[in-house]
């Protein structure tokens, strides 16, 4: 574990005009790691995720991508290494499913951005992987919420970044696709120099799919570590609601009291 982390946060401070969301965050995301970020509504999980993605400036501290300051990279270089699955998809115009899967190729294309046959093949393969094979020419406005979410995953798969930042990836997905898609990404991470950090509201899902945990408390302090952080006491304090941990053959289950 001595190689350069994919993404490292050093004494990171993220604040909004209203308050400090986190202070002094130390984080090293290494290849093969699957991070889960948990916290209450409004704790600043998405804002922290966008900061880690390099989309908004941090108020103090530094962020290093492959050892290089993130702010020094061009947006295009950054987008070749970091991909973001946003919490909601905001489509202004109804394009086709294939076009939408292809936007993931954007950071890899030349200035005029015409896709090659290979890009189109990648997009088709990604669509098939998320269960949208045969949907290529459908308008995105006609998709269901879950189908649109799977299309978001397909765009991310065609982008093929090293670090996947996932904002509530299980949103809109049924139980089958939650496990298909997270399983698919887990496989990718196991096979290469990749990692993910996902924001989640489901400690059971995080316990099952993540091997590293960040707890973001409402007062801005953070705890980082392995899945042993996911205790009933710690999570009850995090959410301000009593939670019980039940052991099962598939990992721990967290049930509200």
């Amino acid at each position: 574990m001595s190689e350069t982390p994919l993404l490292a946060a050093r004494a990171l401070q993220v604040t909004t005009p209203a308050r400090a969301l986190c202070t002094g965050l130390e984080l090293s995301i290494r290849p093969g790691e699957r991070w889960g970020l948990l916290g209450r509504n409004g704790a600043g999980k998405s804002t922290l995720l966008h900061t880690l993605a390099g989309l908004r400036p941090a108020q103090a501290g530094s962020l290093l991508l492959d050892g290089i300051p993130l702010a020094a990279l061009t947006p295009r270089t950054r987008a070749q290494r970091i991909g973001l699955l946003p919490q909601v998809h905001e489509d202004a115009f109804a394009g086709s499913v294939l076009e939408t899967a292809l936007i993931g190729r954007h950071p890899h294309l030349g200035p005029w951005g015409w896709e090659t046959e290979r890009d189109i093949e990648l997009a088709r393969a990604a669509l098939a992987a998320v269960g949208l094979g045969g949907f290529e020419s459908r308008r995105i406005a006609s998709l269901s919420g879950g189908e649109r979410r799977r299309l978001g995953f397909a765009s991310l798969l065609t982008q093929d970044p090293a670090l996947y930042l996932l904002d509530e990836p299980s949103n809109h997905l049924d139980i089958h696709y939650q496990h298909v898609l997270l399983g698919l990404l887990k496989q990718r991470i196991a096979s290469g120099a990749r990692a993910w950090l996902m924001v989640s509201h489901d400690p059971t899902l995080a316990a099952r799919y993540c091997n590293r945990i960040v707890l973001l408390h409402a007062d801005g302090h953070t705890e980082t570590g392995g899945t042993e952080l996911l205790t009933a006491t710690a999570l009850s304090a995090l959410y301000g609601h009593p939670l019980h941990r039940l052991e099962s053959p598939f990992g721990p289950l967290f049930v509200p009291g």
Partner: peptide, 23 residues
């Protein structure tokens, strides 16, 4: 015209566009 590919990405939201490397 040379920015048209960026406009295609921008049509899917500013956050998505920024994360795909569009300034």
């Amino acid at each position: 015209w040379p920015l048209a590919a960026q406009l295609n990405v921008l049509a899917h939201g500013e956050l998505a566009a920024a994360s795909l490397g569009v300034p």
